[in-house]
Nucleic acid binder design. Structure first.
Lengths: 238, 238
DNA sequence: CGTATGTTTGACCGTCGTCAATTGTAGTGG
DNA sequence: CCACTACAATTGACGACGGTCAAACATACG
């Protein structure tokens, strides 16, 4: 029996509209039932609440049901580096697997609902459910692919290309969740964007202004409307 | 029976001096024996020979016995981005897991001996040998960690810090192989270094010159000697 | 030996970071 | 409810770091 202060309702992955992303599609009913028992649906976090800190013992992966989080690590000189933003349907926490402790700190950028997936349970289940093992390896590999795309972006692209890429990435990820691909609210600050993209706040702000003057986007602080999606896409994939 | 043209000798992981890195240390004898049957030791590749191309069907992971390789991907506009250099004892090929085809092209930077680890065999074995599953997840997670360190480097650091970081990284990785941490030969060109670090060849060359004038390193084309390891380390971890 | 490729160095210039000031927004408590 | 404060975002002026272009030189390979 779970404590009501930690868990708000039983998990029903098969009814969850995220399942296409965080679950193997081909999982049979009994395997799914076993997985569900491992997943703990926590009460929503509010803005700026931490999910885990760098150095914390690694216990679980997390899937986002709603909201958004950012992960960042702090280097020796104390400065932060944002390593990722995660949106509904996405899974984070992989960084803890290697050394059994997290390297990133992760916090909610807005009110956020999570599913917690205890990793040892997941490993046990994977032993018995080959598809599950495959699926999670794929998700990890996807994280590697995403990181390598960011590496390419940082190594090669101009400020405008970087910002365009982030907007297009967010647009695509929201679209996959059947949300609007052209109107959305940025969950993160300009500073977070700049940090993530290796730019200063000022540069990010200037790029947003330029994009508006080019009629690529409309933006009112964090509300974004993409006016010219094709051209923005072209700028991004350069 | 293996074709002699493809395989030069039977695999003996337990005698291999790399095993501390690419194998789970705690694997028992029978598990190890089963793993060995899956691993194919190929004849050495020479410089500029490809291991796989972007788009190739993903079949195997590869462990380096000797030599060095570089991985790079090609973006829409045809320009390359080096995503990693791999040295003896390291494993590459993870990028193919997600979509069952490789995103990176990987080639030998010098004469290189590899062990090929067929991925489906590895998955099968992982089902029966929990330690093996754990170990490979850790290795993948390590790749994620490494990529995120590169992201931080590219987002934050100056040209000098980037080059210093690469030299220190190579030094540490060679040291782990019980090779000299202060005298080594760079397997890659200045262009590769620049591409990897998001710099131009000219900038890399200038930084090498500056490092020499500061008495941090000595270098004769690809031969490097680190003169002042503490100061170079300080420059790297900034 | 000759050509292709890699490396170094110089001169110049553009992008983006730094510093600074201003305005707008959000959260707090009287 | 509004003042007060802290924080976020915008815009401008200026300069530095690293990119671009060009030339010279070294090295590798056939």
């Amino acid at each position: 029996m779970r404590s009501p202060s930690l868990s708000i309702q039983p998990t029903n992955c098969h009814k969850c509209r995220m399942s296409a992303l965080c679950l193997p599609l081909t999982l049979d009913a009994s395997s799914l039932a076993r997985l569900e028992t491992a997943i703990d649906r926590r009460r929503p976090l509010h803005r700026n609440q931490f999910i885990f800190h760098a150095g914390d013992r690694f216990e679980s992966l997390y899937a986002i049901r709603s909201g958004a989080v950012k992960s960042y690590c702090t280097d020796s000189s104390g400065s932060e580096q944002v390593t990722g933003f995660y949106l509904p349907g996405e899974i984070f926490g992989w960084d803890g697997i290697h050394s059994n402790q997290h390297r990133n700190t992760t916090l909610a950028l807005e009110t956020t609902a999570l599913c917690e997936i205890p990793f040892t349970r997941l490993e046990e289940l994977s032993q018995n459910v080959p598809k599950l093992q495959q699926h999670f390896m794929r998700l990890m590999a996807k994280e590697i692919t995403a990181d390598q795309e960011l590496i390419t972006l940082l190594a090669k692209s101009s400020a405008e290309e970087r910002v365009a890429s982030l907007l297009i990435s967010l647009s695509n990820r929201l679209k996959r969740q059947h949300l609007s691909a052209t109107r959305f609210r940025l969950p993160m600050s300009r500073a977070d964007i700049g940090n993530y993209l290796g730019l200063t706040v000022e540069t990010v702000s200037r790029v947003f202004s330029r994009f508006q003057s080019f009629d690529l986007i409309l933006c009112d602080k964090k509300e974004i409307e993409i006016i010219n999606l094709p051209r923005l896409t072209a700028m991004a994939s350069q």
